[in-house]
Write a protein that binds this DNA or RNA. Structure first.
Lengths: 197, 197
DNA sequence: TGAAATAAGTGCAACGACTACACTTTCATA
DNA sequence: TATGAAAGTGTAGTCGTTGCACTTATTTCA
């Protein structure tokens, strides 16, 4: 299912990959704003038109795989271990998915990538939207987990706040501690409204 | 101090006003995306260059007076009545400043304005940024009010969450109830971290 | 196997927001 | 009243993005 069957799909995927690779390399080397969309297309040896057939905009060149995000987020709530509260589960997930990898840079390329995103306003904002785009799905998952109607405001609020705290954590020198403090707030607030979950 | 002294400043203010008026009228009539920046300039009888000397971008044409926002926000925390918690004060302020006016439309023009903003992604996002831009100032005010160092994460978190809940409230059919629920979460969480404030 | 349908990729021209530049007009002030 | 600062103008350009008509490669199916 992950394997492209025909030659056509394979070439398509390859073109997309070339574009993403070229973009990241150029952005890292010269800075996001110094590189035009034309430069990326040229480096990948395709036309600008083709570039926009693959990516919805310049910022999207950097975030290749945003599809898993929502599923993982929902799963983090649904499949949390017994006794773990929803805010705790979300803190773990966000911390794992974002910060730990970036800080203990196993791969120095990932650290560079994160720095690029954090230092470029356009990309920082885009990343934030990427996450917030899944607010509704997360809110629904939370509502289902506690067994309340899915339009409960407190669920939407928890979803939004948790997703927002991501950027709060990311910019802090000690992400783990920041996450603990930010989520402590949510933890207590949530417990008051929904005891025992 | 609010009175422009010379004729020059008066004309400048007038030009700015013409632009803002023309923009709002056109946007309301035809929709934000259907109106070009050129159309606005023409309607105000100035050049496009001049338009951009007055406003930093197309979206800014709609939000004329964002300067008071920060001061009012800080004041809402600093000058809250005794016995009122910080989250309560923020809920009141946001509710008053945003939602009440929009709902009980004293002025139907204000309702139209709010609808325009909410229905136009570019404007909705810009408005959200406008508020979030003052997160740091609000966080500082909160930290000062409780007497903790100004880089306390919980203060930044409360500031961010409160500002974010604005849009949560705005899109809800019953803003008052939504505000109560969202801020209840913050209320309890905050009380746990900073008892008695 | 050999069309015919399908989809990727191309080049060009254009649009809209925005900026740089060199210029004119208008006002304040010494 | 002369001088300089500041408001305004028009043009031409950049950059991201889209529409269009077109070629080329691959899949499908009669």
């Amino acid at each position: 299912m992950t394997e492209p069957t025909g030659r056509r799909e394979r070439k398509k995927a390859q073109t997309r990959q070339s574009l993403a690779d070229a973009a990241l390399e150029l952005f890292l080397e010269c800075g996001y704003d110094q590189v035009g969309v034309k430069d990326v297309a040229d480096a990948a040896d395709v036309s600008v038109t083709t570039l926009f057939k693959h990516f919805s905009g310049k910022e999207a060149l950097v975030f290749d795989q945003d599809d898993d995000l929502e599923a993982a987020l929902v799963a983090a709530v649904r499949d949390r271990t017994d006794g773990q509260s929803i805010p705790q589960a979300l803190r773990e997930h966000i911390l794992l998915k974002q910060t730990q990898l970036a800080v203990h840079a196993t791969d120095s390329r990932f650290a560079d990538f994160t720095r690029l995103v954090q230092e470029t306003p356009a990309l920082r904002d885009y990343a934030q939207r990427m996450w917030t785009r899944h607010e509704a799905a997360l809110a629904r998952a939370i509502a289902e987990a506690v067994g309340v109607p899915e339009d409960e405001v407190s669920c939407a609020a928890l979803a939004r706040f948790a997703l927002e705290s991501r950027s709060l954590i990311l910019r802090h020198p000690e992400p783990r501690r920041a996450a603990d403090e930010a989520f402590a707030l949510l933890e207590h607030g949530w417990a008051a409204a929904h005891p025992g979950s």
